[in-house]
Amino acid sequence: MRALRTLLILVVVFGGLFVAADRVAVYFAEDQVASKIRSSQGLGSDPKVSINGFPFLTQVVNTSLDDVEVSLDGVSASADGQAVRVTEVRAELKDVKFDSSFSTATAATATGSARISYADLTGSAPHGATVGYAGAERAAKGQVKLSGPMGEVLDGAGIDIPAAFKSLLDGKDLTAYSTVSLVDGDTVRLKAATLPELYVPGAEQRMRDVVDYDLKIDGLPSSIRLDKVTATETGLSFSGTGTDVSLAG
């Protein structure tokens, strides 16, 4: 009986040591993977990496990781020098194969996602305008709403308002709807679907020139290509998938 008890104690102790060693190895590997991804993908900082699955050491022996999650901070989009914050940038990598020297790694599949809030998207709109939710029907078409005091928005767009027309704009609000799409996997394109009557001769085309613009998302790993955008109640959500995604080397 005493021998059995001693054996059980040894099993628990060595099992605990194995788990501890396994977790230490995971933390070290996560740091190494983050560094590899940063250098190979040209990122400005190390991403946060979580290697899932247990035991980790068995995965190392098989030179294959079942599931790796990557999240990034400090990603932004830019339009004519105007920076817009991109949040919740994540990638989930499945079946990551690496060589014995850990110098190269390839994920069989990858799913990426990101988000831009309407508050952040407003930073790229003409001065005086805000970008917001367009309602369920228009959001289903991938549209967002741009609104604000008409005189202020036209002035923010650099459109001169003749004195004879200024009184026509008093108390009037501008409401326009833009369709959002993705271009080349890393660029958000906003294009006006509707504009209201602007009362100022020649203002509509000039307003379109301001409202229609591209936001280039900077700082995404080159292997993540976004292919879907959804207008939600809180902002724009992006997602994308890839196969045979190279992570290092």
Rank of each mutant, 00 (worst) to 15 (best):
A91W: 01
E152I: 07
D31C: 07
S103R: 15
L43N: 05
V144F: 01
S147N: 08
T130W: 03
S100R: 13
R23A: 11
V61D: 04
Y118W: 11
G42L: 05
V144D: 00
I159A: 08
A163G: 10
R38S: 06
Q41E: 07
V84W: 01
R115Q: 11
L72F: 12
D67R: 09
K36M: 04
L57C: 07
I37F: 04
G42T: 07
F102I: 06
T111R: 14
L121F: 05
G148T: 03
V75S: 02
R138W: 02
Q59A: 11
L43I: 05
T63H: 15
A21L: 15
S76Q: 10
K36E: 01
A20C: 07
A83W: 01
S124A: 15
S101W: 06
V75G: 03
V19F: 15
V19T: 14
V131K: 00
G135A: 08
L72H: 04
K145N: 06
K97Y: 07
G128E: 05
V33T: 08
L57G: 03
V61L: 14
T58W: 15
N62H: 14
D66W: 09
V33Y: 08
A21R: 09
G112I: 04
D155H: 11
Y133D: 10
G128C: 10
G142C: 07
S117Y: 01
R138S: 06
A136D: 15
G42M: 04
A91R: 04
A163Q: 09
D80H: 11
V19H: 13
E137C: 04
D46N: 15
K141H: 10
V75T: 07
A163N: 09
V96W: 06
R90H: 12
E69R: 10
V33W: 10
G158L: 10
F54P: 02
N62L: 14
E88L: 01
D95G: 08
R90T: 13
E88I: 00
Q59G: 05
T130G: 14
T106W: 11
R23L: 14
E92Q: 11
T58A: 12
I116T: 00
D155R: 14
V131D: 01
L17I: 13
K97R: 14
D31W: 13
A139R: 07
I159S: 06
V60L: 15
G156V: 05
V89K: 00
T104D: 12
G132H: 07
L17A: 15
V60D: 07
T87A: 00
V60S: 10
G123Q: 03
D46V: 06
A91H: 06
Y133T: 01
Q82F: 03
D99L: 08
T58Y: 14
D73T: 09
S45R: 14
S117Q: 04
V24Y: 15
Q59M: 13
R23D: 05
S50K: 12
A139H: 09
S39A: 15
Y27K: 12
I51K: 03
S117K: 03
S35T: 14
A108D: 13
A134S: 15
R115V: 00
A125V: 04
A105F: 05
H127T: 13
